[in-house]
């Protein structure tokens, strides 16, 4: 029984690289939201990144809703990603601002074999640029690249063009094979580190601080 292995039911990944007691406390906690239509494989990408596995072989995991992983960027800063998965169904769309509020990073995922998922991703990007934290770093990710030969609907150029028009990072990945998955996150981490290093101790990348000031409003 899968649940017996982890009776405490923690959904996060194992602590990687010791972020909390990391080198000289230089680790930075970054809240990252995953957005995209239901079924595009948002959580598979996160799971692949955090655990290096794809759930096809039935590996027991309690959940992929909240995951964490620390990675090191070139200038020896550690970035600890708090990865927040969000519900992708259209009917829960209105709840999204509660999740991306104050997030310094977002990964918007679509499925290269689905036109609707790409349209949804474009809508997400628009919404984020209008409503989220203005400093937010967005990566547009086309998943299921392993199925490109059989079922590609969205040409790579379309994704690339939309990304460059909106100042996003762009990658096509496959959560199934693991192709490019790590790149998405390492590139994001590098950009965030570069963004925040000139003004050291910048508070824009500290999700908790931003959260603090704005959260009162959502209660009722």
């Amino acid at each position: 029984m899968s649940s017996a292995k982890r009776p405490n039911g923690r959904a996060s990944g194992p602590p990687v690289g010791g972020a909390r007691n990391g080198p000289e406390g230089k680790s930075k906690q970054i809240k990252l939201v995953l957005l995209g239509e239901s079924g595009v494989g948002k959580s598979s990408i996160a799971l692949r990144f955090v655990r290096g596995e794809f759930n096809e072989n039935g590996e027991a995991t309690i959940g992929a809703a909240y995951l964490t992983k620390t990675i090191n960027v070139q200038n020896s800063t550690a970035i600890k990603f708090d990865i927040w998965d969000t519900a992708g169904q259209e009917r829960y769309h209105s709840l999204a601002p509660m999740y991306y509020r104050g997030a310094p990073a977002a990964v918007v995922v679509y499925d290269i074999t689905s036109q609707t998922s790409f349209s949804r991703a474009q809508a997400w990007v628009k919404e984020l640029t209008q409503q989220a934290n203005s400093q937010i770093v967005i990566a547009l990710v086309g998943n299921k690249a392993d199925m490109a030969s059989e079922g590609r609907v969205i040409p790579t150029e379309d994704g690339k063009e939309f990304a460059s028009n909106n100042g996003l990072m762009f990658t096509e990945v496959s959560a199934k094979t693991g192709m490019n998955v790590d790149d998405v996150f390492t590139n994001l981490a590098a950009k965030i580190a570069a963004q925040s290093s000139p003004e050291s101790n910048s508070t824009t990348v500290r999700p908790t601080n931003v959260e603090r000031t704005e959260k009162g409003g959502c209660a009722c």
């Binding site: 029984m1 899968s2 649940s3 405490n8 039911g9 923690r10 959904a11 995953l34 239901s38 079924g39 948002k42 959580s43 598979s44 799971l47 759930n55 096809e56 039935g58 027991a60 995991t61 309690i62 959940g63 992929a64 809703a65 927040w84 998965d85 969000t86 519900a87 992708g88 169904q89 829960y92 709840l95």
Partner: peptide
Amino acid sequence: ATTIMNLLSMANEKAVPAADDFIP
């Protein structure tokens, strides 16, 4: 929340439950 996630992960050994499954 973690109880729900546990129950969901017991339901299907192949799929890992995520936010899409949790919210409803």
